[in-house]
């Protein structure tokens, strides 16, 4: 009953050092995210969540294994421009340019389309400016459009980052714990807004998320990553704190290579 996969990884291995002397950060990750689904990636810090998201977004190259997004292979530096535009990425610290205004930051999302000299002079197509303003409006920060980003609050910055990614017009969005600086209530509001947009436009959404309540409430499916392997995968509704802890404890005692779900197969406990 599932639509075709939007994101596919097969046996992905990665280390920041030179293999095999340095330890592996990711050890044989395989996953398949169906189109239009919202997946959350959970796991203790140091589990490799950020690295995984960067690899899927094509910002890092795995040492072994393949990654496909929207059916096309991803390799760093060799992503065709039309595919690049379809992949949205929100880093942990958002990656906003502090000295530019909110609107200017949102317009950066259109740079993949507007490659000429005009944007360099600050001239963006009217249609893009209009859409950027619409997104800021929908996100409730249109009145801050001309404020420099360094004057905005944490929650406002998150909204700017979301608007920038949406203006890009992606089919897949990867986000790296970008709400972790907010309190639970605000983080929930942001994730809910994000869910609204990705569901409306059929965008596939992969998010690193700490807060179990938020995963349970808003995500479709979740993965638990530990020491570079996927140790559990399940429906978000079924996630509870005790389940999360049990999984982590169970896999603390066994070898990671024996992990359940390591090959991306759904395991219902």
């Amino acid at each position: 009953m599932r639509s075709p996969a939007a994101v596919r990884a097969h046996d992905v291995w990665f280390t920041y050092g030179s293999p095999p002397s340095a330890g592996w950060v990711l050890r044989g990750i395989s996953l398949e995210v169906p189109q239009g689904c919202f997946w959350a990636i959970l796991g203790p810090s140091g589990a490799g969540k950020t690295t995984l998201v960067k690899i899927l977004a094509g910002l890092l190259t795995p040492h072994r294994g393949e990654v496909e997004v929207l059916g096309l292979p991803i390799e760093q530096g060799r992503i065709p421009q039309h595919l690049r535009q379809k992949i949205g990425y929100i880093p942990q610290q958002l990656g906003l340019v502090r000295g530019l205004t909110a609107l200017e930051n949102v317009l950066l999302g259109s740079l993949g389309r507007n490659t000429g000299l005009l944007p360099v002079l600050g001239l963006f197509p009217k249609a893009d400016v209009k859409r950027a303003m619409e997104y800021l409006e929908l996100l409730g920060i249109a009145h801050k459009a001309h404020e420099k980003v360094f004057r905005l609050s944490g929650g406002e910055r998150q909204r700017v980052a979301i608007a920038r990614t949406l203006l890009q017009g992606p089919k897949v969005i990867f986000a790296d714990e970008f709400v972790s600086d907010l309190d639970l209530l605000r983080a929930g509001q942001i994730i809910e807004t994000m869910r609204h947009f990705v569901k409306r436009d059929g965008i596939t959404f992969l998010l690193n998320l700490h807060e179990i309540q938020l995963v349970q409430e808003f995500a479709d499916e979740f993965l638990i990553l530990k020491e570079g392997t996927i140790v559990y995968q399940g429906e978000a509704r079924s996630l509870t704190m005790s389940l999360f802890q049990e999984v982590l404890e169970y896999h603390g005692e066994s070898s990671p290579s024996c992990a359940v779900g390591a090959l991306g197969n759904r395991v219902d406990l």
Partner: peptide, 26 residues
């Protein structure tokens, strides 16, 4: 901050754009 450069590269910005919109204002 490499994260800001990465985010802009991620939307498909070219080098001129990076220089104008990320490197210069930062």
């Amino acid at each position: 901050d490499p994260e800001i450069v990465e985010a802009a590269k991620g939307v498909g910005a070219n080098r001129l754009h990076l220089a104008r919109f990320v490197i210069w204002p930062e």
